[in-house]
């Protein structure tokens, strides 16, 4: 799905990513691991268009997407979540969901006055789907609460549901289980596996090894901005370079 060729990015004197070439092919869930500062989030930012690469190319479904703006990448089918969860705090949980619907008729000014029926029908459909997804992640009782009042774990669930609401081909999750309790981690993993069954494709940054091993079919390892290994979870666990990068021995 996603392919990068010789991707590099530096911030001042720090080489965040250097000559990174990787290809996500055919796997429903791919993991991206590496020590802090190894360039994982930078790679996500490059793929999703939030940062321009210094050099290199990015392809999605064979089409080149580097140089496109974030909303264009998202419209092409790649939706991301954020390491530090970002909900829209002073909007209700339901509005957080509804806002994610792509290409809404009611977002153009003229349609508000000339196509109000179309908008009403569309809103009803979107609302139905949003409520289904809210129930699915277990936040039904909070649907009219401001999202900012939710606990961190609940916000993570909302963010996941919202990403799905945007109807993407692929979701990039940046540490989906960081900072939440073990029971919630279990819930999160079940939801991700369920979405995989529905045909969703994932690229996941994660530090929790249990989560990575259980979810991922293929793993890339970054260290100091370079890809040092890739393979199946079992192989990665035994790879001496990976152990060295993580333990420093």
């Amino acid at each position: 799905m996603i392919e990068t060729k010789g991707l590099s990015k530096s911030f001042g004197g720090i080489q965040a990513l250097s000559n990174c070439t990787l290809s996500l092919k055919g796997h429903a869930i791919t993991g991206l691991i590496g020590p802090n500062g190894s360039g994982k989030t930078t790679l996500f930012n490059l793929i999703t268009g939030f940062l321009p690469p210094d050099s290199g190319e990015i392809y999605f479904k064979g089409k080149r997407i580097d140089g496109r703006l974030p909303h264009e990448v998202a419209s092409a089918g790649i939706v991301r979540t954020f390491q530090l969860t970002r909900v829209l705090p002073k909007m209700t949980v339901l509005d957080n969901m509804l806002i994610a619907c792509p290409r809404q008729t009611g977002e153009t000014l003229s349609s508000l006055f000339f196509h109000s029926n179309t908008i009403r029908v569309e809103e009803n459909q979107n609302r139905k789907r949003a409520l289904e997804l809210i129930e699915w992640v277990g936040l039904s009782h909070l649907k009219d609460q401001w999202a900012g009042n939710l606990s961190y774990g609940q916000q993570k669930l909302l963010e996941l549901a919202r990403a799905l609401m945007a109807n993407p081909t692929m979701i990039l999750l940046d540490e989906p289980t960081a900072g939440i309790n073990p029971i919630m981690i279990q819930t999160m993993m079940e939801l991700i596996l369920k979405m995989k069954e529905w045909g969703m494709i994932f690229f996941i940054i994660e530090h929790n090894m249990d989560v990575i091993i259980e979810l991922c079919e293929w793993i890339f390892v970054l260290d100091n901005g370079e890809k040092i290994a890739e393979g199946k979870p079992k192989e990665i666990q035994q790879n001496p370079r990976v152990i060295e990068a993580y333990l420093g021995v």
Partner: peptide, 29 residues
């Protein structure tokens, strides 16, 4: 009021709350 209560108004409020999120969801903020 029509604008504010519409999906357009909702998207505008979303931009107020967090522009980055809206961009990540495919909106041309």
């Amino acid at each position: 009021r029509i604008i504010i209560r519409s999906p357009l108004g909702r998207t505008l409020r979303g931009i107020r709350e967090d522009e980055i999120v809206l961009m990540a969801l495919g909106k041309n903020a």
